[in-house]
Simulated scan of single mutants.
Amino acid sequence: MDLNLIRVFVAVYESRSLTTAARRLYVTQPAVSQALGRLRRELDDALFRRAGRTMEPTPFADAVYPGFREAIAGIDRTLDAVHRFDPADSRRLFRIALSELGEIGWFPSILTTVRAEAPDVRLEVVTLDPASLPDWLARGTVDLAITTATMPAAFDRVLVKSQPYAAVMSTRNPLAGGTLDLDTYAQAAHVTVASDSGRPMLEAAQRRAGVVIQPQVAVSHFATLPPVLAADPGLVATLPDMIAAGWAQTWPISLTPLPFDMPPVELYLYRRATSQQTGALDWLFSTVARAVRGSTGQFFVIHGDSGATPR
């Protein structure tokens, strides 16, 4: 049996898509369809059936996938040892899933670090969707993801940041610069951000302290917060202190410790579980982890205009 047929099978099984499998294997979709037809004849099974836009595996495909994947992974590991991935010569496309804050804060450092070793690789940022992320990592839709969400144990991960939270407000807020007690915090006018992936941990810490926040203002994006806080001195936001410290360089914003215990929110780098290009993935995983760990974040790029009074 042609080994390339097994590669096609593994790619289609993991991606559930002929188009995605073709992109991963650097071939055309008709070539994938042709290879899949040959493999169906070889194994005397349909292997996949189309369900809408998804290729659903048959019970036979489910049964043979683990063995096929292990065989392909073993061959690739052996080839990687002989012909090591050379980032300097690579023109691969890598996809990284990042939140809004991840793209603003960490991607510049990721890009600089990757480009230093691999000037011709292509990087694509995919907007992070925590609900879809396990499926993306399983199918190889993205190569890496940076998130506070907990993924299944099937995906390798490393801790890249621990982010303490702080109360953030305008320097004109009467609470700025002082010690914030729990009652005052609870009674303040709060603004929240829908895209904050650390919100579940924050709300859990607030509940443990006996605090339930009903925000007066809710925004969709973090980038909206600095001008909102600067414009309304009565509002208080609770967010990672590293981000607020970056904003405070150009916005009239003050940070105050929280009046309750909240463990730092842990930020993890995950890698896809699919078998292709393991040498390239190993390099990308370690390079991105090094870039994020060594960066303080580029959050200051959301800066105040000439009308903002420096802190």
Rank of each mutant, 00 (worst) to 15 (best):
A245C: 09
A21M: 04
A118K: 02
S99G: 12
A88K: 12
R122E: 15
R92S: 14
I253C: 09
I146V: 15
L128W: 08
G67S: 14
R41P: 07
P226C: 07
V125C: 12
R271T: 15
I253N: 05
S15R: 05
L235V: 01
K161N: 08
A205L: 01
T192W: 11
L79D: 06
A61L: 03
V265K: 09
Q163M: 05
Q206C: 12
R208C: 09
L18D: 14
A204Y: 06
P87I: 10
L133V: 02
G74N: 14
G140P: 07
A166W: 04
A116W: 09
D261H: 07
R115D: 03
L79P: 05
Q249I: 01
F94G: 09
A149E: 03
E266H: 11
W251C: 02
V27P: 04
A231D: 03
R157V: 00
L159R: 00
A63V: 04
D62R: 14
G105T: 07
D232Q: 11
Q276L: 13
P252F: 01
V142E: 10
I96E: 02
R7V: 08
F85H: 08
I72S: 07
P108L: 03
Y13R: 09
L137I: 09
T141P: 05
V27G: 05
D305R: 00
S220D: 15
E117R: 10
P252L: 03
